[in-house]
Amino acid sequence: MPKLKTKSGTKKRFKITGTGKIIARATGKRHGMIKRTPKQIRQKRKAVVMSKADRTIVLKYMPYAR
């Protein structure tokens, strides 16, 4: 069987912790900052741990990351 390729966009956007959780950037911080409160902008600086439902989707694109 041939090896499966990892999606290169997934490699760049997500990191997997030692316990198997997936870390991603917070959403909603690309543009339109004038609409957001300063509190929202501060909170979106940090990385976010993804939910279990999203985790299964991301892991399909990273076949050897388990």
Rank of each mutant, 00 (worst) to 15 (best):
A53M: 02
M62V: 04
K3F: 06
H31L: 03
G32W: 02
K11E: 15
K5R: 11
T56H: 11
G9S: 14
R13V: 00
T19Q: 11
H31S: 11
G28I: 02
T6E: 08
T17A: 00
L4K: 10
I22M: 01
K5C: 05
K39Q: 14
K35R: 14
K29N: 15
T19C: 07
K60Q: 15
A65L: 07
D54G: 10
R55A: 13
D54V: 07
G18E: 15
A24E: 01
D54A: 13
P38H: 03
G18A: 12
R13W: 01
T56I: 13
G28F: 08
V58H: 01
A24L: 04
A26V: 01
R42A: 03
Q43F: 09
T10M: 05
H31I: 03
I16V: 05
Y64T: 14
G18K: 14
H31Y: 08
K7Q: 12
K21H: 10
K60L: 10
A53D: 12
K46S: 13
Y61R: 14
G32A: 01
I22R: 02
K11R: 15
Y64S: 04
G18N: 13
I16C: 00
Q40T: 15
T17E: 01
I16R: 12
S8D: 13
T6D: 02
Q40P: 02
M33S: 15
K15S: 05
I16Y: 03
I57D: 00
K11A: 11
V49N: 03
Y61L: 09
I22L: 02
M62G: 02
V48I: 04
D54Y: 07
R55E: 07
V49P: 12
I34W: 06
M62L: 10
K3W: 04
G32Y: 04
F14H: 04
K29Y: 10
D54P: 02
T27Y: 05
A26P: 07
K3V: 10
R13M: 10
A53V: 05
Q43Y: 07
Y64H: 04
K60V: 04
A24C: 13
R45P: 00
K3H: 09
M50R: 07
T17D: 03
M62Q: 05
K11G: 05
S51A: 14
P38F: 04
K39C: 03
R55Q: 08
K39G: 07
K35C: 08
T37W: 06
Y61I: 03
Q43N: 14
A24M: 05
I41T: 01
F14M: 00
K15W: 13
A65Q: 03
T10C: 08
V58I: 02
P2G: 09
A65S: 01
M62W: 06
K44T: 15
K15V: 09
S51C: 06
A24H: 03
Y64W: 03
R66D: 12
H31N: 09
K12D: 12
M62T: 00
I34R: 10
M62K: 04
G28D: 03
M50Y: 04
R13S: 15
K39L: 15
K21I: 04
R30D: 13
A26W: 06
I57Q: 03
I23A: 02
M33K: 14
K21C: 02
T10Y: 13
R30P: 05
K35F: 11
R25G: 12
I16F: 07
K46W: 02
T6Q: 08
M50W: 01
P38V: 01
Y61M: 14
K39D: 14
R13D: 13
G28L: 06
Q43A: 04
